[in-house]
């Protein structure tokens, strides 16, 4: 299904609940009523085109948002991606970490295994933090500067030659998968976590909850990467071309 502005947002969410974290990230709180996407965007001052392309990217793996690209500023994309990063780092990951340590506490015979899993996940988190830091400290500032330079392009003195030294293609080329290890973590839990005592019910419960969180995070990160690859990168490539032509 292609999500369009005339659809009612509530219906769309009913249809695909994976979109819940997205509306949350656009500061659309629940209880938003019966309006269409267009109406709600107007009320809440959300860029309609951008909102639609994010919804569609999350909803449909085949979706490619080329038509919308030109119509919203890069700073919007970056603002969105930044919010998502904060959500992963400050909420999701600590939540998973605390589940693992809870499992460790609850375990009677599996402490060694849980220690291994916990170290594995901690290593993963470090990698993920590095990945995010590179985007936040290197890539996004470059994009914002580029956008600023383009907005002020009548003013020739503002043109910053340094911007020519970087290219979003470098980022695109070594933008690595961040979900591979999450996949492994799931396999380890599903297939190889040794069973606890039959009466250790809370352990069971927490391990199911942990598994569910890993599935959700993995899927989220996949969509997040697709937004970076399919929305941010092409958008910036267009900006770079425009910028070069100003010289």
């Amino acid at each position: 299904m292609l999500i369009v502005g005339e659809m009612k947002l509530a219906e769309v969410i009913h249809h695909d609940y994976n979109l819940v974290p997205v509306i949350n990230r656009f500061d659309i709180p629940l209880g938003f009523g019966d309006g269409t996407i267009k109406q709600i965007c107007a009320q809440r001052n959300v860029n309609l085109e951008f909102f639609l392309s994010i919804l569609n990217t999350f909803h449909d793996e085949q979706y490619f948002p080329k038509d919308y690209l030109k119509s919203f500023p890069a700073s919007l994309i970056i603002n969105y991606l930044h919010k998502a990063h904060t959500y992963y780092l400050d909420e999701k990951i600590p939540q998973i970490k605390s589940m693992i340590s809870k499992l460790f506490d609850l375990s009677e015979g599996n402490k060694k295994t849980l220690n291994l899993l916990s170290n594995f996940f901690n290593d993963y988190c470090k990698e993920f933090e590095l990945h995010v830091a590179r985007e936040e400290k290197e890539v996004y500032p470059y994009v914002l500067k580029l956008e600023e330079a383009l907005d002020n392009s009548e003013n020739q003195t503002m043109l910053d030659k340094d911007l020519l030294n970087y290219s979003i293609r470098t980022y695109e080329q070594d933008h690595e998968d961040v979900e591979e290890k999450l996949f492994d973590m799931k396999s380890l839990i599903i297939k190889y976590l040794p069973p606890e005592n039959a009466n250790n019910n809370i352990f069971e419960e927490v391990s199911y909850a942990l598994l569910r969180e890993l599935f959700v995070l993995e899927k989220e990160l996949k969509e997040h990467s697709r937004i970076e690859d399919l929305i941010l990168v092409p958008k910036v490539e267009g900006m770079e071309e425009q910028f070069k032509s100003n010289f």
């Binding site: 060694k112 295994t113 291994l116 591979e180 290890k181 492994d184 396999s187 380890l188 297939k191």
Partner: peptide, 17 residues
Amino acid sequence: KLGIKTVSGLMVYALMN
């Protein structure tokens, strides 16, 4: 067979078993 792709994932498997 294992459903594990990364070297560090394989390491955890090997240690666990």
